[in-house]
C-alpha cells in the first residue's frame, strides 16, 4: 500500500477549527488541524474520548463545515461546492459507518443496505441486485429479508458496512467501527474493512481509540484536545 506517493490527496484539511456553543459556553472542539488523505490509503484518527476525532471526521466527510480553515476535496475548496454537489458526493463517493448502527429496525436488512441507492434514485431492480451483492460480500445474504431489529451486534455492524459499500464509494468513513463489538467480532469487522481497502482500493478514514486497530492503518494521526499532537506512518502496515 504505497499510494502515498506523488498523487494529490483526495481529501485534505488545512488548519480547520470548529467550536460549539457561544460566549462562556463556547468550546473549541478542533483548534487548527491539518491533514491529508490520499487515495487508497487507510488513515486512523486516534485520540481519547472527547478529543475531537468525530468532529474532524464529520468535517472531512462534508457533513459539517469548519469555522475556519479549509477542507479540500481534490483541488476544490468544499466551500465552493453547492449543496447539491455535496449531497451527491456524500451519496456516491462516501460510505459511512457511524458510532451507532443507525439501522431502521422495522425495515428489512436489504432495505437498510440499499438506502444510499434509494436516495440516489436507483431503480428497484438494480437496487436489489447491488444490495444482495454487498450482503453476499459480508456473508449476510441469507439474512436479507430479516428485520434489522432481529440481528446480533456483529451482524448489525456487517449490515452497516454493507450499506457503506453498496454504492461503491471512494472513501469509507468509519467512526469507532469496533467500539460496540466484542473482540472476536471486532476483529472480523476490521478484517472486512481492510480487505475492502486492499482489494478494492477504497480509502479508509477510521476514527478509533484502539491502538491495535490504529496500528493496522497506513497512517495514524493523534489528536488531543482538538489539536494534532503527532502522526505515524506505518510503512509496513499489514492487513
Amino acid at each position: 500500500m504505497n499510494s502515498t506517493t506523488i498523487t494529490s490527496p483526495v481529501l485534505a484539511a488545512r488548519g480547520i477549527r470548529k467550536s460549539y456553543g457561544r460566549g462562556t459556553a463556547r468550546f473549541d472542539a478542533l483548534d487548527g488541524v491539518s491533514l491529508e488523505v490520499y487515495a487508497g490509503q487507510s488513515i486512523a484518527i486516534v485520540g481519547k474520548s472527547g478529543s475531537g476525532k468525530s468532529t474532524l471526521m464529520h468535517l472531512l466527510a462534508l457533513l459539517d463545515s469548519p469555522d475556519a480553515g479549509e477542507v479540500m476535496v481534490g483541488d476544490t475548496d468544499a466551500k465552493e461546492l453547492s449543496v447539491k454537489q455535496v449531497n451527491r458526493m456524500r451519496n456516491e463517493d462516501f460510505g459511512f459507518v457511524f458510532q451507532q448502527f443507525f439501522l431502521n429496525p422495522n425495515a428489512t436488512v436489504l432495505d437498510n443496505v440499499v438506502l444510499p441507492l434509494t436516495i440516489a434514485g436507483v431503480a428497484a431492480g438494480e437496487r436489489k441486485a447491488r444490495g444482495m451483492a454487498a450482503l453476499q460480500q459480508l456473508e449476510l445474504d441469507d439474512k436479507a429479508k430479516n428485520m434489522a431489529v432481529n440481528l446480533s451486534g456483529g451482524q448489525k455492524q456487517r449490515v452497516v458496512i454493507a450499506r457503506a459499500l453498496v454504492n461503491n464509494p471512494k472513501v469509507i468513513f468509519a467512526d469507532e467501527p469496533t467500539g460496540n463489538l466484542d473482540t472476536m467480532t471486532g476483529a472480523l469487522v476490521e478484517d472486512i474493512l481492510f480487505s475492502l481497502n486492499k482489494d478494492k482500493g477504497i480509502t479508509l478514514v477510521i476514527v478509533t481509540h484502539d491502538p491495535e486497530l490504529a496500528a493496522r492503518c497506513d497512517r495514524q494521526i493523534f489528536i488531543r484536545d482538538g489539536r494534532e499532537v503527532g502522526s505515524l506512518d506505518n510503512a509496513g502496515a499489514a492487513a
Binding site: N87, R88, R90, Q100, F102
Partner: peptide, 16 residues
C-alpha cells in the same frame, strides 16, 4: 430525528 439525520448524511436533499 436520527433516521432523518442518516438520510441527510447519505446525501438526501432537504426538498426530498
Amino acid at each position: 430525528t436520527r433516521e432523518i439525520g442518516l438520510m441527510k448524511a447519505m446525501g438526501m436533499g432537504g426538498g426530498r
